[in-house]
Write a protein that binds this DNA or RNA. Sequence first.
DNA 1: AATCCGGGGGC
DNA 2: GCCCCAGGATT
Length: 341
Amino acid sequence: MRNSRRPAQLLLRWYASARRDLPWRRTRDPWCVLVSEIMLQQTRVSTVIPYYERFLARFPTPESLAAAPEDELLALWSGLGYYSRARNLKRAAEAITAQGGFPETAEAWRQLPGIGGYTAAAVASICFHEPCAVLDGNVARVMARFTAEPGDIASPGVRLRLKERAQALLDPRRPGDFNQAVMELGATLCLPRQPKCLLCPWRDLCQAHQRGIVDQLPVKAPRRQPERLELQLALIVDQGRLLLRRRDGDERRLAGFWELPSLEDLPSSRALRPLGRFRHSITHNHFEVEVWYGRLRRRPKGCHWHELDRIDSLPVGAMTRKAVALLQRVHSQKSPQFGTA
DNA sequence: AATCCGGGGGC
DNA sequence: GCCCCAGGATT
């Protein structure tokens, strides 16, 4: 009994001194914690922080989000990616509002849209002290090394085992701290490459470390190779307005988002001239983007004008942002009073 | 079980 | 370039 508690004690002692001061660690408000957990899905801490601050300033409660127009939400989420997270968060906020309060168990949280096993366990343990272990990428890696797990950590069977092992180690008196401590360990010491075992509180208990195979774990299946694609976009500007088209609402990705028309969409591209190019990767698609610039006599079918200085309030993907940023650079060169030259 | 969804930081 | 990130939904 005493022995099984030792790993948790070692970990929590380390966490007390090594934990980073992150915005969502300064509160136990379920709404703030939920927002952070959703944003942190497949997204790094440093990326999330500015989005988190802006989001909660605008939507401090589930009620405020439930009442908001979706476009405003998506504009605020723009650039963070995985936009179904935002749409599901709004639906969850609506459910919470309708229920008149937050769920209090992981099982109940799990019922909300966009909330899976990880997020449910995270919020329930941090905000409601439910003794349930989380399993995310960090915990999977830490536990795979701690127990020298030989299986592929992507396989459901292995993931279940890893979660059970985390559950067995969890300190039921401090489930939220324990969960965050394991993740902190994975994020700061037990790194995918070149882990800092010398600083690790579990060094002497870690099976992989004892066997000298830390750098061989965790085992992961090879991933599919990316596709290269070329894209030509048109940046049509007139009187401070930009020509955009809206993607269908049932598109697989970036549904309902505004984007630049491609060259093929335009009746004539003779008047356009090259402005620049850049690369942009979306999951396994690697785009080489060429941007053309100019004016058009008339508005093409399906396209709409938008004020250039109000693009920020539209749902717009990062690729479109990069292209528009290209334009800002040209403008500042043309207008010395706004540039440094 | 496989695939898809965005995007970016770090090496 | 490649890996992988406080995952979840869909097929």
